[in-house]
Amino acid sequence: MAGSTGMRRLGKDAVAPRATTEPRWVRMTLTGLALSFLALFLLVPMVLVFYEGLRKGIEVYLAALVEPDAAAAIKLTLLTAAIAVPLNATFGVAAAWAIAKFEFRGKNLLITLIDLPFAVSPVIAGMVFILLFGAQGVFGPWLQGHDLKIVFAVPGIVIATAFVTFPFVARELIPLMQEQGPEEEEAAMVLGASGLRTFWRITLPNIKWGLLYGVILCNARAMGEFGAVSVVSGHIRGLTNTLPLHIEILYNEYNFTASFAAASILTLLALVTLAAKTAVEWRLARATAAMTVEPEGVPERRAA
């Protein structure tokens, strides 16, 4: 918990001064309203996914997951994340190192530019790569001449996914490393450690929880991306269908059970992501609290 004034530590309603809290019925009403809203918008849709997926029995559910097209979609989704996430993690560490450890002009502009993919509609993100690599695109004729295919093929899916998940790791690490400052690394260098050794022994242990946090979020989005991938994939079953696209096709064919069965996998992934994220947040808060001397300004949670 951030802050530790004596007042707050009293905690329990019974001892909280009446002047700075609400009457019991107000508290109950507000809590009830907030929980009902969350139940309606978060809990019920999630329960529904599993209910619809399992409605026709466990055999039908499992059959929907092992049929060849579903298996191919799962494989492609994993492959895409396995390429896009490490790329963006490497970039994130490099960008955070440059931004947090050095002073240069245009730093704020660079930070804003890194956030840019979050401001772009996924459909536009996909469209950009059609304009570049499509048949009528900038590099279209050249690609065709060399018999290369990027859009409506796997490379396009990977590139579009890398685009939409681009900022996740960087935007976690930049504030974290800025807060840590360059002093520890400078001390290591002055004491004679090499640059690489300093990075492995000092920087990486300091940022590991932040890095993991960014990777978890990046991975969730990479596996779940729909809009951008939908534009560049061409929807070829068994070849360029990721799991989210597979769900869409089944749903549009009124094959609801199979569609929700596939959706339940991604819902489980989302739940695992949330659990891992919460665990890492907890470690991150502890690590930051241990490192900073003054108790104020300890970020208990980083706004996503």
């Binding site: 849709p45 529904l48 969730a220 779940g224 989210p244 959706a263 991604l266 949330l274 996503a304």
Partner: peptide, 20 residues
């Protein structure tokens, strides 16, 4: 922790669940 579900849940899943 559950508040972040819309960030973690793929949009297509949210789409079919809400429609149903």
């Amino acid at each position: 922790a559950l508040v972040d579900l819309p960030f973690a849940l793929p949009t297509a899943v949210a789409g079919i669940a809400l429609t149903t």
